[in-house]
Amino acid sequence: MQPLLRVERLYKTFRKSKEQVYALKEISLQIARGECLGVVGESGSGKSTLGKVILALERPDSGEVWLDDVPLLQLKGAALREQRQHVQVVFQDPNASLNSKMPIWRSIMEPLDNFPDVMPPFLSGKRTDRIGLAAQLLELVGLPLDHLARYPHELSGGQRQRVAIARGISLNPKLLVCDEPTSSLDVSVQAQILQLLKSLKQTLGMSYLFISHDIASVQYMSDRMIVMKDGEMIDEFASSELTHQDRHIYTKLLVEAAS
């Protein structure tokens, strides 16, 4: 079967004083339908740049990203905008992704408002009943309904991240990019968010690109993992084989530091 996402030979350089630094160096990968691919790496390894290129928020120097045989990087204007419903994102900092002057229900409904023709299969009722739809989304991420009318500052960090997730899944995207979704949260809250993402993946059958520097949570979340360092993909394996003998030495270092 065709993979959902194909990334082919991505290159991206940044200029740092006089040197050229590779953020992405010959990155090729695939994500199957319903699969979660985990990306591990330290800051500056290029893992977030990879996420942004797949979201078509950043242009690579060369290479191509195919989503269901649509070349994402060739798209422009209305076609690109139309394509965006299929790849959604949850960022690290929910404070920065929610508008502090909007009540929660309006933040959640923004994507559905932008795509009035989309009706995700896991929602029911009238498409015009915006509060009703927002309420269902809120329920999916385990928040009480009285949060609909609240503002971001009235919620805790974990609750805000749940709102960001509700918005991320609202268009029933083919791929959800999670870029360090738990890094700004307390450990106990981190666990709850990971559980939520994992159960959503099962119930909704979504595919994930899960990016984090925390190797244990990446293993917990994903079916397959890649390890990035200085823009290069230095290791790739099934998540169950993280502690195998033949891992790259750098992967072993990361495992050691985390256990």
Partner: peptide, 11 residues
Amino acid sequence: QQLLNARPYIT
């Protein structure tokens, strides 16, 4: 106990 088990362990 809850804090100890909060984050997933590497397996």
